[in-house]
């Protein structure tokens, strides 16, 4: 927390403003709140786990933008196959 605050001061508030805007606008534009995204992530984990073993902790679901085009990006790492021989 304090480190973030110091970093924020160090580099000027304009950069913080820009980053906060980029984050909030991605959600505004998609009409998807952060909590909706959380729910979506849980459901994705549930659905995918029925077919493939995944690393649940490593899953990330986020919105990104490319110009004004919105994208929902899900990164779903598979569980390590402990039985596999190297």
């Amino acid at each position: 927390m304090i480190l973030d605050w110091l970093r924020g001061r160090e580099r000027g508030s304009a950069r913080t403003a820009k980053e906060r805007l980029q984050f909030v606008l991605v959600h505004d534009r998609a009409g998807v709140s952060a909590s909706t995204l959380e729910a979506l992530k849980d459901e994705l984990i549930e659905a995918i786990s029925r077919h493939v073993e995944i690393d649940r902790e490593g899953v990330s679901v986020s919105l990104t933008k490319d110009r004004r085009r919105q994208r929902l990006v899900a990164d779903i790492p598979l569980a390590e196959r402990r039985t596999a021989k190297h």
Partner: peptide, 17 residues
């Protein structure tokens, strides 16, 4: 803007596209 305490035109354009 020079002190990094105000969004510059470049930032706003990048955000709004």
């Amino acid at each position: 803007v020079r002190r990094g305490e105000m969004l510059k035109a470049e930032d706003v354009l990048e955000v709004l596209a």
